[in-house]
């Protein structure tokens, strides 16, 4: 699905990612954990094509194609989805409008006809229900005046409707209370499938109690310093990020 090799990235001439290697197969969930400033958000931004990052070396191959060559919208149409840490408010564009525009641009890319209006509504309502959102949200402007939890739920709603192949979740759990977290996790879990992969970037172990990862990677100072199974997250929780950083320093 996604193969990242020796990826190095600069922001304003400062090296942030210093050689990332990551192999993600279909159906897998990878959690990337790390302290603040370790480069977690940079990694998710670079994968989704945000401007302001210079790739200085290495590669990211997505389904056999060079991901880094694609514009952000092509990545999205090819099935990459970024759930934002800070979803943007767009006054004047309703949620339902955005969903329709997004879904149709993806369908067009895949040579499918525009979605039928009735089918679309049925699909949307079903997902709204799944995320325990009020239908009224659909007709409100994108994220405008939404609470932190509502914004994150809205990201998962989009994800559920666009059905991406690779979901990158950038600190989706930050700022969520436990109830909102459970709903978001449930939404994500319902999307798990043998064809769909997830990269969950998070600072906190708590998210992983609700969405069980196959692999956990620890990112520190621009490198993956440790990889393991779900048990690594628990170990981290217990010992703190200082533990891996100290280990790395010792090595």
């Amino acid at each position: 699905m996604l193969s990242i090799k020796d990826l190095t990235v600069n922001v304003n001439d400062k090296q942030i990612l210093k050689g990332i290697n990551l192999e993600i197969k279909p159906g897998e969930i990878h959690a990337i954990m790390g302290p603040n400033g370790s480069g977690k958000s940079t990694l998710s931004h670079v994968l989704s094509g945000k401007a302001g990052y210079t790739v200085t070396g290495g590669s990211a191959t997505y389904q056999g194609k060079d991901l880094l060559e694609m514009s952000p919208e092509i990545r999205a149409r090819e099935g990459v989805f970024l759930a934002f840490q800070y979803p943007v408010e767009i006054p004047g564009v309703s949620n339902i409008y955005l969903l329709k525009a997004a879904l149709n641009s993806i369908r067009k890319h895949n040579d499918q006809p525009e979605v039928d209006a009735m089918d679309f509504l049925t699909l949307v309502k079903e997902k709204v229900c799944l995320l325990e959102m009020d239908e009224k949200f659909l007709y409100r402007a994108v994220n405008e005046g939404f609470s932190g939890g509502e914004k994150k739920r809205n990201e998962i709603l989009q994800m559920a409707i666009l059905e991406p192949k690779l979901c990158i979740m950038d600190e989706t759990d930050s700022g969520l209370d436990i109830d909102a977290l459970k709903i978001v996790a449930e939404g994500v879990n319902s999307l798990r499938s043998a064809e769909r992969s997830f990269v969950m970037v998070t600072h906190y172990q708590r998210l992983l109690d609700y969405i069980k990862p196959d692999f956990v990677h620890v990112l520190a100072q621009g490198r993956i310093v440790k990889s393991g199974g779900p048990e690594l997250a628990l170990e981290l929780e217990e010992k703190g990020y200082g533990w891996v950083e100290d280990n790395q320093a010792a090595a």
Partner: peptide, 29 residues
């Protein structure tokens, strides 16, 4: 706003369409 343009692009909408949508949205409010 560049952040809004990127947000729409990340949902599969091309840059020019995103700009038109945002211009329209600005007025449509």
């Amino acid at each position: 706003d560049e952040k809004s343009i990127f947000y729409l692009q990340s949902r599969g909408i091309d840059e020019e369409t995103a700009r038109n949508m945002l211009t329209f949205a600005f007025a449509n409010e």
